[in-house]
Design a protein around this nucleic acid. Structure first.
Length: 927
RNA sequence: GGGCCGGUAGCUCAGCUGGUUAGAGCACACGCCUGAUAAGCGUGAGGUCGGUGGUUCGAAUCCACUCCGGCCCA
């Protein structure tokens, strides 16, 4: 008999599975979006007057995506999804960065070739194949994450239209006089006779000579040196750079001293006195005087073995007291810092070394010698002149060529530059007009731009966009004019940049194929290509200005914080150089992905988390939840513990949704909904709470702080819904007549809640919410076919009741005390489930105020007990609980009567009727 | 070494412009339920707010230094 009543209850029913099985079910959802062409549907939906363009930073099309790329793409994806629902037109065009060294090297390695043994066109074809292959792999991986965008027509930097615009942007910079050819030291392998990129450098420990050299001081400007032999002491590990020595750099804030030894005086940093003394054997017996580094600026010395060459004192912050003498010999043609200093002080970028590693013949003293021979010669002469103060060996880390494993050198060569210095002020202004999120991004990029030097845009490589310059074979003129660049650009637009290698200058330039200086028709093409950062840095022009659905400037760029140096900056520079303003209105940055201990991921540490594995194991929605649950302004941690936690949170939200769905199985929103004035108070209360949630969640999305919505909704599901509202309404939903107002009131509220929560979660848990949505559509067929086509929930101020929330706040306060009392009763084995209990509440000043704010029916409901008594004196009872937290005194007694087999509440009449009074009425109506 | 950032319970986050015993969810422990059931409910135990020093009547909140970690650069 007992189980028979189960059939008379309105128990939840749903086909929505409890177990998510995301790894599998998500694939169906992807298929669904593909089938209905969700992106096109969105594009047809929005109103164009409100446009939000998130411009995608192109990932490099090499290898599979890693956790950082996945994080970035998911974070981005949440924004257009939200904006579409808010009524914006928010197209998202993904892109790829496809040129450049990593792909070229990978291709060469795969082919077992080097770049000179393969025709450029063949190499480029293979590179393109490689990029294409990985682009496709990544595209599928991104789609698998649930990212919605124009995957069928992404932007790709190797597309002819893209390259053409890039060249046009370059032409504009040439027009403005921002492009020049100059010298810059680069990594150079004398063995392979080639320039190397930073990525081709390996650091190895080697032994180098360590020498101290005396540079005679010119006495003008130095106080108190009359009649004395005075020298500056420098220290170097590369004697072969001394022929190119042009300056001595000192730190502006260090203290320098003139120390005498016998009849000589030496200049060196005060802090290095002992070290130099030790390593040179010179005994400094007297310090003549001290001087600040900055006071040395502009003073002069003489080259240690070119007596007619003047050496100037300059300042540099990079001078350290770790090694040497605090006076740094500076050869602008042989080192990055030296070069910077050289540029600053207008020194010659002097490089007497040729590509094979020999001093050019006209070099004094060492002309024609190899670097090694030159080095020996230098030492010999220094010794001869008595200017070698100390000689030793030192082990240190030094860059080597990755291919031949030989030490490399720094060697100034001709490169193309963009004169950032000419529009640096404008760039800084542009930076200040952008909204940086978080705000410190502004300081970071402004500092970087302020300190940066001109942009070296040339690479001696094959896989990239050619720098469209020419050289006259007759007069040697360097030809870089915007009209010729535009000619080339037109050809590139038509044929792709391969045409640079396939066409003669005559074909490329047509009527402009002549030297503007000597009219010669014999021209030679530049062999350098653009830095890939120039490719991606011009994407705002190549993409935003060419696609009708997009707009320039972008509303937002969103990348990791490393892009302050990278894409944010290169985009900004090309934009300021061509358009005079930033290409974005907002820049959002996130931190880096680290492991559970906050350490960066590395293969050697073995702490790398693969997005593919997470998806396989837990599903993309878990990954999405991870992205949304973090405060991404800091580093973002991921670990098995964190994922397990997320799975747990996910489960809770999913089950809450499932439970509400199950209780709506017989609800027709169009016919069964109640108007607010007909609803139960508790249902109005939960809807009032829901308004607060909508407001908080919406604000979180507006501020791009996705962890706010995530936590807010999760906590709402746990605290308000699962632990309270849904729990105490089981009685109503199951037991009352299916079509009763009591039950319909609750269903009306739940329908509103589940729709609202599902919508608000959709930018985050896209797969799951779409799944829920499809179930909701079975309840209401008028809903849009995909959740992403629906509108964002709006806050209904008429549903917000502050006084109601305050009232229920007090009810919950008392409920806490009752729960603790019931728990005490359970501890005494008085009761099991709470319906077995009768709650006796002692009336005091507080509880007396509460008694009448709810009907007895609702008090029982709120506590989920069979009886509630408000008494002046507590009865004799097995469990009397004096609640510490509230001060309320409660006695728990066994509920009287017997357990109704239908609703499980205890009532006296059950013995007689077989069920309680309420159930008998419901049953009577049913039959 | 420089620029920028972060360090609150095992985990993810709150904690506004300094002011009662530092909050929440998850995880954990114990218990209940078996009509959300590879679910649900209740109770409870977890933190010297990275460390040191300072300003203050009072600091997780302000300042200095320091340790640890991250990005970028050298």
């Amino acid at each position: 008999m007992p189980d028979d009543y189960k059939e008379t209850l309105n128990l939840p029913k749903t086909s929505f599975p409890m177990k998510a099985n995301l790894a599998k079910r998500e694939l169906d959802m992807l298929q669904f979006w593909e089938d209905i062409d969700i992106y096109q549907k969105l594009m047809n939906k929005g109103e164009r007057e409100k446009t939000f363009v998130l411009h995608d930073g192109p990932p490099y099309a090499n290898g599979n995506i890693h956790i950082g790329t996945a994080f970035n793409k998911i974070l981005k994806d949440m924004i257009p999804k939200y904006k579409w629902m808010r009524g914006y037109f928010s197209p998202y065009v993904p892109g790829w960065d496809t040129h450049g060294l990593p792909i070229e090297l990978r291709t060469l390695k795969d082919e077992g070739l080097d770049k000179d043994s393969l025709h450029p066109i063949d190499l480029r074809r293979k590179c393109k194949e490689c990029a294409d292959r990985f682009l496709d792999i990544q595209r599928n991986e991104f789609k698998r994450l649930g990212v919605i965008g124009d995957w069928n027509d992404p932007y790709i930097t190797f597309k002819p239209e893209y390259e053409a615009i890039e060249l046009e942007a370059f032409a504009e910079m040439v027009d403005r006089g921002y492009v020049y050819r100059g010298q810059k030291p680069i990594y150079w392998c004398t063995d392979c006779q080639t320039a190397l990129a930073a990525a081709e450098i390996e650091y190895e420990d080697i032994s180098s000579p360590s020498i101290y050299v005396a540079y005679p001081l010119k006495k003008e400007g130095f106080p108190n040196l009359e009649g004395k032999e005075a020298y500056a002491i420098i220290w170097t590990t590369t004697p072969w750079t001394l022929p190119a020595s042009l300056a001595i750099t000192v730190h502006p804030n260090f203290d320098y001293i003139f120390a005498s030894s016998n009849d000589k005086v030496y200049l060196l940093a005060k802090g290095l006195l002992e070290k130099v003394q030790r390593e040179t054997g010179i005994n400094f017996n007297n310090v003549l005087y001290e001087i600040k580094g900055k006071e040395l600026e502009g003073l002069k010395a003489v080259h240690p073995f070119y007596d007619d060459k003047e050496i100037i004192f300059v300042l540099g912050d990079y001078v350290s007291l770790d090694e040497g003498s605090g006076c740094v010999h500076t050869a602008p043609g042989h080192g990055a810092e030296d070069f910077e200093t050289g540029i600053k002080y207008d020194l010659e970028i002097y490089n007497p070394v040729d590509g094979r590693g020999y001093f050019v013949p006209e070099t004094p003293l060492v002309g024609g010698l190899s670097l090694e021979e030159g080095s020996e010669k230098v030492l010999e002469v220094l010794k001869q002149k008595g200017r070698l103060l100390g000689e030793g060996e030192i082990m240190h880390s030094y860059p080597h060529c990755w291919r031949c494993k030989k030490p490399i050198i720094f060697r100034a060569t001709n490169q193309w530059f963009i004169a950032v210095s000419m529009f640096k002020e404008d760039s800084l202004k542009a930076i200040s007009s952008v909204q940086w999120i978080p705000s410190w991004g502004q300081d970071r990029i402004a500092n970087m731009v302020r300190e940066r030097s001109d942009w070296c845009i040339s690479r001696q490589r094959i896989w990239g966009v050619p720098i469209p310059a020419f050289y006259c074979n007759d007069c040697g003129e360097l030809i870089l004019t915007s009209d010729r660049i535009r000619k080339v650009s037109a050809k590139v637009r038509e044929h792709g940049s391969d045409c640079w290698w396939l066409m003669e200058t005559k074909e490329l330039l047509e009527e402009l194929a002549f030297c503007p200086k000597c009219n010669s028709k014999s021209l030679k093409k530049e062999t350098d290509i653009f830095d890939v950062w120039f490719d991606s840095g011009t994407s705002h022009l190549a993409v935003l200005t060419t696609r009708p659905e997009l707009k320039w400037p972008a509303t937002m760029y969103l990348e990791g914080s490393d892009q302050h140096r990278g894409w944010f900056q290169t985009s900004l520079l090309t934009s300021v150089a061509t358009r005079g303003r930033a290409p974005f209105e907002m820049v959002l940055t996130h931190g880096f992905i680290v492991d559970g201990e906050g350490r960066k991921m590395s293969k050697s540490l073995g702490n790398v988390v693969q997005p593919q594995e997470v998806i396989e194991k837990y599903g993309a929605d878990i990954l999405r939840l991870w992205v949304a649950s973090t405060d991404y302004r800091n580093d973002i941690r991921i670990s098995e513990t964190i994922l397990k936690n997320l799975v747990e949170s996910y489960r809770r939200v999913r089950n809450t949704m499932r439970y509400m769905l199950g209780n709506l199985f017989d609800f027709d929103p169009h016919n069964d909904s109640l108007a607010p004035e007909d609803m139960e108070e508790i249902d109005l209360w939960i809807l009032s709470k829901l308004q607060g949630i909508i407001s908080k969640v919406t604000r979180g999305f507006e501020d791009f702080e996705f962890h706010v919505p995530t936590f807010t909704i999760h906590q709402f599901c746990v605290n308000e819904l699962s632990a309270f509202y849904l729990d105490i309404n089981k009685d109503r939903l199951y037991v009352e007549a299916a079509d009763s107002k009591l039950r319909r009131s609750c269903q009306t509220a739940m329908w509103n809640i589940i729709k609202t929560l599902t919508l608000m979660l959709s930018p985050i848990l896209s797969f799951t919410t779409e799944e829920v949505w499809q179930h909701l559509r079975e309840i209401d067929h008028t809903l849009p076919e995909s959740i992403f086509l629906a509108d964002w929930p709006t806050l209904d101020p008429t549903l917000y009741h502050e006084s109601l929330e305050e009232k229920w706040e007090r009810i919950l306060w008392l409920r806490g005390a009752v729960s603790r009392a019931l728990e005490a009763a359970r501890g005494q084995d008085l009761i099991g489930q709470s319906l077995e209990a009768c709650v006796n509440i002692k009336l005091d000043s507080e509880t007396a105020k509460l008694r009448d704010i709810l009907s007895p029916y609702w008090w029982k409901g709120v506590f989920i007990v069979s009886d509630v008594n408000w008494v002046d004196e507590l009865p004799e009872a097995p469990v009397v609980h004096a609640d510490e937290e509230t001060g309320v005194k409660i006695a728990i007694t066994k509920a009287c009567g017997e357990k109704c087999p239908r609703c499980w509440m205890y009532a006296p009449e059950v013995a007689e009727k077989g069920v309680c009074g309420r159930c008998s009425m419901v049953l009577a109506a049913q039959s």
